[in-house]
């Protein structure tokens, strides 16, 4: 495996991208989960699907689009979708969650139209849906690196603000945090992370990489910093194990990564239960 990575460029691309998104997806995912926005990630990834499908269709029709990386389209449409969700959330104040199914359906709807127009599923599209070990190009890797830098800078420099905003939005407003602006950028950042991750885990499974490692981390951590560290560790473990399995079995990495992360979650839940029982027994025996 190691020697294969050293000798094949496509494997280097896949593994480096994997390691990077294993870091940024759960990192941002933590903020998404504690703010109960997990469905937004789902909606945005389906908007990215529409963008990808649209670009694949156009590349069949118009020469200009043939040379253009569909990832750009996916990212652009996800960013557009994120701004639209914000707008809709503002309009339906009391039904904020209504914006999400609307955008999600729109994404699937346009996606379905473009897929049908292009006469069905090409192998390209399957790669975008479930991820791919072999299809990650140098250019894709560069996109992932640029996005990672943006995301990490955003969280590094607005950590305090993001924390208050997540824990207590009213208090954030009272204490003068510019919630509206930070929230807007947050949505765009989410769209970017989805764009970065879709090459490896696939559009349909992006949101799982943002939420499942976080779900496991929240079982373990007492502090927010701790939850962040655990999320990243679990995310990286899932990506590394998932990619290796996918490489040897020659299957889509999206599936193996997500199933691995679910395995981690189950392990953590079981571990916690066993520990809980043990503690209870210690207490009982202490009383007796």
């Amino acid at each position: 495996m190691i020697s294969a990575i050293l000798s094949y460029e496509f494997l280097q691309n896949a593994f480096l991208s994997g390691l990077i998104i294993g870091f940024i997806a759960p990192l941002l995912g933590l903020f998404i989960v504690v703010r109960r926005l997990a469905l937004i990630a789902d909606a945005l990834s389906h908007v990215a699907l529409a963008g990808i499908a649209g670009s694949l269709y156009l590349s069949q029709q118009v020469l200009f689009f043939t040379g253009l990386n569909p990832v750009y389209f996916g990212i652009a449409s996800a960013v557009g979708g994120s701004l639209l969700i914000e707008k809709l959330r503002g309009m339906y104040r009391h039904y904020e969650e209504l914006a999400i199914p609307v955008i999600l359906s729109a994404g699937i709807g346009f996606g379905a139209i473009f897929i049908s127009l292009s006469k069905g599923f090409g192998s390209d599209l399957v790669g975008y849906l479930f991820g791919s070990v072999s299809a990650v190009s140098r250019q894709d890797l560069v996109i992932v690196i640029v996005i990672a830098i943006i995301v990490i800078a955003y969280i590094r420099f607005l950590y305090k603000e993001l924390f208050v905003l997540s824990f207590d939005p009213d208090y954030a407003k009272v204490s003068g945090v510019n919630s509206k602006y930070i929230q807007m950028v947050f949505m765009v950042i989410t769209a970017l992370v989805i764009g970065a991750s879709m090459r490896i885990v696939g559009i349909l499974l992006v949101s799982s990489l943002m939420t499942i490692p976080v779900a496991a981390a929240m079982q373990q951590a007492k502090s927010f910093k701790g939850a962040m560290i655990y999320s990243i560790i679990f995310g990286e473990a899932a990506v590394i194990v998932g990619l290796i399995i996918a490489y040897y079995l020659d299957i889509a990495p999206g599936g193996t990564i997500v199933v691995t992360s679910i395995g981690i979650l189950l392990f953590v839940l079981t571990w916690k239960k066993i520990q809980g029982k043990r503690n209870a027994r210690i207490v009982e025996e202490g009383i007796v």
Partner: peptide
């Protein structure tokens, strides 16, 4: 269920 310590809050 929010993962935060008293100190962080």
């Amino acid at each position: 269920g929010f993962p935060a310590t008293v100190l962080e809050v």
